[in-house]
Amino acid sequence: MSVPTEHLLILSAILFSIGVAGFFIRRNLIVVLMCIELMLNAANLAFVAGSRHNAFLAGQDQTDLEGPIMVTFVIVVAAVEAAVGLALVIALYRRKQSVDLRELTELEDGSHA
């Protein structure tokens, strides 16, 4: 495959931006969590791009393992974050019967005044 590294990076940048935009647009907490997953994947793509780039620069039959190992850990952490996030969403749902970000209004400046 002769796709240049830049294209991988551009793909990752686009995915990251879509994730960021979604993070700010959406109010459904579950969708917000999904946007965070998107951003994590975009980061993974950047690591993959870097690893491939560095391996190819080093020459034939070379590898750069830092990237793939980081990606593995990120996937683990993504699972962890999804679990914690969804548990928090469930806790919120139990209290408010809603998963809307707008429900998070108890703690504002002056609410305790």
Partner: peptide, 21 residues
């Protein structure tokens, strides 16, 4: 959590760019 996870994603993406460079 939400903001922290956002921050972590930002960190990872930044690390990815740094690693590539």
């Amino acid at each position: 959590f939400v903001l922290g996870a956002f921050g972590v994603a930002m960190f990872l993406y930044g690390a990815g760019l740094l690693y590539t460079a």
